[in-house]
Amino acid sequence: MNIFVLTGAGVSAESGLGTFRDKDGLWSRFDPMKLATPEAFAHDPDQVHAFYNMRRQNLLSAEPNAAHRALARLEAGLAERGGSLFLCTQNIDDLHERAGAKRVLHMHGELLKARCTACGDTMLWHEDLSVAAPFPSCRHSGGLRPHVVWFGEMPLEMDAIYDALLGANLFVAIGTSGSVYPAAGFVSEARGHGIRTCEINLEPSDNARQFDERRYGEASEVVPVWVEQVLSQKI
C-alpha cells in the first residue's frame, strides 16, 4: 500500500507548538500580513525576524509526540511490506524527523533553515536571525530570511507532491484546517482519481465532508490507533 499523509499544525499542537486558525491560534494574536509576507519583511525585517526567532526558540524546546512517532513507525512498517509513505507536511517544524521519519517533504519550508535572498542558498540555522547577519557561503549581509513560505508565495515542490498523491492508494489529512490552498484541494484531487480518503483531526475541518472516512480526537491518541490498524491490515 502506498499512503500519502498530509499533516498540519494540529499534529504538533500537543508538542506545544501553536496552531494558526483556531480561535486561540497564532493568527488570532498576530497579524500575518505584518509578519508572514514578503512585503512585511521588506517593510520591517527586524519585526519579522523577531517573530520567527521566537518561534524558532519555541521549536528547539519542543519534543515529538505520539502522533509523530506513530507516523515514523508507519513509514518503516509500510517499507517492510513493500509499500511506502509519502509524508508531506504544512508544518515548518522538524518534529517528524526527530521522531524518526526518514523522508519528509516540507511544502511550506523549514523554520530551522535560513535562506539568502542574494545567492538563493539555504542552510541549517538554529540561532536567531538578524538583518546584519552574513550568510556564510556568500558573505552577503542583509539578505537572510527564514526558509519558510509566506502568504503570496508558492509552496515548495508541488510537482513532486502531485505525482506522489496520484500514485497513492490512500490519502490521509492529519491535523489540518482544510482552509489553506493548495493543500486543502488535495482531498478533491484524490477523490477525482478514485483514491480513498481519510481525515484525522481534533474536530471536522472546513472540507470534512469530502473525506470517505473521518476520525476525531487528540492526534496523540487517534493517530497511533490508526497506524496500528493500518499495519495490522485491519483497514
Rank of each mutant, 00 (worst) to 15 (best):
L111S: 02
F86K: 13
A118I: 07
C119R: 08
I200H: 08
E14N: 09
A160N: 06
R215A: 04
K234C: 03
F151E: 15
A40E: 07
V223D: 04
V222N: 01
S177V: 05
T19C: 04
L95Q: 06
A114K: 10
E218M: 07
A160F: 00
L6K: 07
N65S: 10
M1H: 10
G100Y: 04
A160D: 10
A36N: 07
A62W: 04
D93S: 03
R214K: 14
A114G: 02
P32E: 10
A42Q: 15
A101E: 03
S137V: 12
G217A: 08
L170H: 09
Q90G: 04
L60V: 07
Y216C: 10
E153A: 09
G10L: 06
L74M: 08
V230R: 11
G8A: 09
G10I: 03
G142L: 06
M107G: 00
T7D: 03
S12R: 08
G217V: 08
A72P: 03
E14H: 10
V230W: 03
R115Q: 13
C138P: 02
V104E: 03
A13Q: 12
E199T: 00
W27Q: 14
A132Q: 13
V149N: 01
A9F: 07
A184G: 05
S177T: 12
S28E: 10
V172Q: 05
T37Y: 05
V148R: 00
L71I: 02
L85T: 03
G25D: 07
T122P: 03
V225L: 14
C116F: 02
L202Y: 13
Y181M: 11
P182F: 01
N91T: 00
D44M: 10
I195E: 09
S232N: 11
A72F: 03
V149M: 00
A132W: 00
A66S: 13
N53P: 06
P146I: 00
Q229C: 02
